[in-house]
Amino acid sequence: MIWIGDVLVSQGEGGVYKERMLGGARVWDAYRSKLSALYHVGTGVELTPGMRVLYLGAANGTTVSHVADYVEVVYAVEFAPRPMQDLLEVARRRKNIVPIMADAARPEYYAPLVETVDLLYQDVAQPDQAAIALRNCAFLKTGGYLILMLKTRSVDVRKEPAEVFQDTLDSLTAAGLIVQESVWLAPYHHDHAAIVCTKPSG
């Protein structure tokens, strides 16, 4: 990851969402992007130029554009038409974003488009976030990483966030993933947690 002092940046064409530029690089704001927040409060996963990424819940393509600055290709899945229009605009100007308009809970519909990836990143506002992640692990190579941005309030508004967090960790572990890191994204994002897992062989 590229840091200028304590500011996280990425190298690429600016002006995607009026982001600030610093020394010719794009500032990656932790208050706007949960992935950036993860790099600020925890370790995360080092993004490298050869990486292939499957990004679920791409939304307006803000975080996607930063990820695309670091890696080889991003497969960006988004379901809603309104944010998809913005995502398409970002994809038209970057060669390595493949926008896919599909439901992340139904990977069978985009499986003929997506190859095996090194990193599965998920940020979706759905109640069954762990199940969606596990279903999409079919695309993850052995030794690859899953970064799950857990929106606890989307799982169940009535449950305590800590309880949802623990339940999710349990179901990921039960499915055979190895949890490497799990942190809350406060003070940048409230009631949101990041879980980093690896997919072991076998």
Binding site: P81, M101, L113
Partner: peptide
């Protein structure tokens, strides 16, 4: 490969958006 896939996916998304609206 990436360029062609991207072109197809962008066209597919444009068509889906048009249909939804």
């Amino acid at each position: 490969y990436i360029a062609r896939l991207q072109a197809v996916c962008i066209a597919a998304a444009e068509r889906s958006i048009r249909e939804q609206y």
